[in-house]
């Protein structure tokens, strides 16, 4: 029934584990080392209020958490995840199709009795499934490090934040997938997806720096479901969830439609 999904789950386990491994190692290091490095970490937290740092790492929206263990954890997790989301959502979905086209394995696969849209959907589902490990690893490392450090955290906040990260991965990944379905060629697909995803990151970073309350940031998916807005809403802000989900679903449907209808020249 889901042969393409199962085959690709088996094939992609290593790539799928890289993101969670980075989170576990890097955020875990900070969590477990917090008691020893508390002063340095809190000093860094203060530096994060600097607009230049905000421009580089993106606005993490940590103002509401003060100078606490929880804020420190979100600072490192947020910085790491911003970069991870950027690269995972760009490199994996944009190349889901183009690697098969480059290697010409798509030729045989298309001759099988499986609708094209479903073939692509199953491949994208693998990306989404492995990305579930990312929120799980975030929640796990937050909970475990807080126990080790003897500090308290809001598990609800971490869970909501992690779900937000997964939704961002979904929406940005769907945009990259659409670029892959349109261009098919690896370098063209990556370039197009790179321009769109990096431009959004740029809008979020520079928009926050130049015009914090302006309209620029609202065009960036990185702007939504930050710690600050989750804290304000005391849950995942539904309006933001709706925006990110709508963009993701629209991009995914477009990608599946393009792939289903397009032709495959030599």
């Amino acid at each position: 029934m889901v042969n393409v999904y199962l085959k690709n789950m088996k094939k992609s386990w290593f790539v799928g584990l890289i993101g969670p491994a980075v989170v576990l190692m890097f955020v875990g290091l900070i969590g477990f080392g917090y008691p020893m490095m508390k002063d340095i970490i809190l000093e860094r937290l203060e530096q994060m209020q600097n607009p230049i740092m905000t421009a580089i790492l993106g606005d993490l929206g940590l103002e509401g958490l003060g100078f606490t263990f929880e804020a420190a954890m979100f600072m490192y997790a947020g910085g790491t995840l911003n970069i991870l989301v950027l690269f995972i959502s760009l490199f994996i979905p944009a190349r889901l199709l183009s690697t098969e086209v480059d290697k010409k394995t798509i030729d045989v696969m298309l001759s099988f009795p499986i609708p094209r849209w479903r073939y692509l959907a199953e491949k994208f589902a693998v990306y989404l499934t492995y990305n579930i490990l990312l929120p799980i690893s975030i929640v796990s490392i937050f909970v475990f490090s807080s126990i080790v450090a003897g500090e308290t955290i809001s598990v609800t906040l971490v869970v909501n934040y992690s779900i937000g990260i997964w939704l961002q991965l979904f929406a940005l990944g769907a945009i990259s997938l659409l670029c892959g379905a349109i261009f098919l060629d690896s370098s063209k697909a990556l370039t197009a997806a790179g321009v769109i995803v990096f431009f959004q990151y740029f809008l979020d970073s520079i928009g926050g720096l130049l015009d914090p309350s302006g309209i620029l940031q609202y065009f960036s998916l990185f702007h939504y479901m930050r710690i600050g807005s989750i804290l304000d809403a005391n849950m995942l802000p539904l309006g933001e969830v709706l925006i990110v989900l709508s963009v993701g679903i629209a991009a995914l449907i477009s990608a599946l439609t393009v792939f289903h209808k397009r032709e495959f020249a030599i």
Partner: peptide, 18 residues
């Protein structure tokens, strides 16, 4: 889809999963 249940295709320069 109905057709593809009953056909086999060998493309020129056939590529398989390495």
């Amino acid at each position: 889809l109905k057709i593809r249940k009953r056909i086999g295709y060998v493309p020129g320069d056939m590529a398989l999963f390495e």
